[in-house]
């Protein structure tokens, strides 16, 4: 089969990064940041703000490890450019505990032994928080379906489900 000899990108000279100032409210504190347009929200959180709780798994929006809440909604931070979210409120796993008390979901994950290696856990918890706020899941099947964007390679799914059910039962309007 014929192969392309030369790609257009190979001929293009890469200009130096243009940085733009943006403002984000991250976990309740306002941050002014200079970002290149191609910096993802995930890389911004981890590399610029040292908020390494949010994890990079696949970096393609398939595993959910990078899940954070932007303006209250759960999204994949790896598939979002930071510059697009200028002026938004971002909540990461670091922003859930309050005055040294774990968020009910964090406590439920511990109570229910809802993780093994823990790598997917920040994304699972942020996703579960989004799920509870959305209010579309009540039954175990509905929770499973609406948590399908978060992969757990250790297979802790039954306990993750239990932790979410516990939180739905014991809290209202988390």
């Amino acid at each position: 089969m014929k192969r392309p000899i030369e790609f257009e990108s190979a001929r293009r000279v890469t200009p130096s990064p243009q940085r733009t100032q943006i403002t984000l409210n991250v976990n309740g504190s306002e941050k002014r940041l200079n970002v290149a347009p191609w910096t993802t929200l995930l890389d911004l959180l981890r590399e610029h703000l040292d908020l390494t709780g949010t994890k990079k798994g696949c970096d393609h929006g398939q595993c959910g490890a990078c899940t954070v809440l932007v303006d209250g909604k759960r999204i994949n931070s790896c598939m979002t450019l930071a510059i697009m979210k200028d002026g938004s409120n971002v909540t990461t796993i670091e922003g859930l505990a309050h005055n040294g008390t774990l968020h009910p979901l964090q406590q439920a994950f511990i109570d229910c032994d809802a993780f093994q290696c823990g790598y997917c856990t920040p994304g699972q918890i942020c996703s579960a928080l989004g799920l509870i706020r959305e209010g579309h899941a009540e039954t175990p099947d509905e929770i499973r379906e609406l948590m399908s964007g978060n992969i757990c390679r250790c297979g802790a799914y039954p306990n993750i489900l239990a932790a979410i059910q516990q939180t739905i039962k014991t809290t209202k309007g988390v």
Partner: peptide, 8 residues
């Protein structure tokens, strides 16, 4: 897709 992707 997933709930996160549908939110975006």
């Amino acid at each position: 897709a997933s709930a996160q992707l549908r939110n975006m």
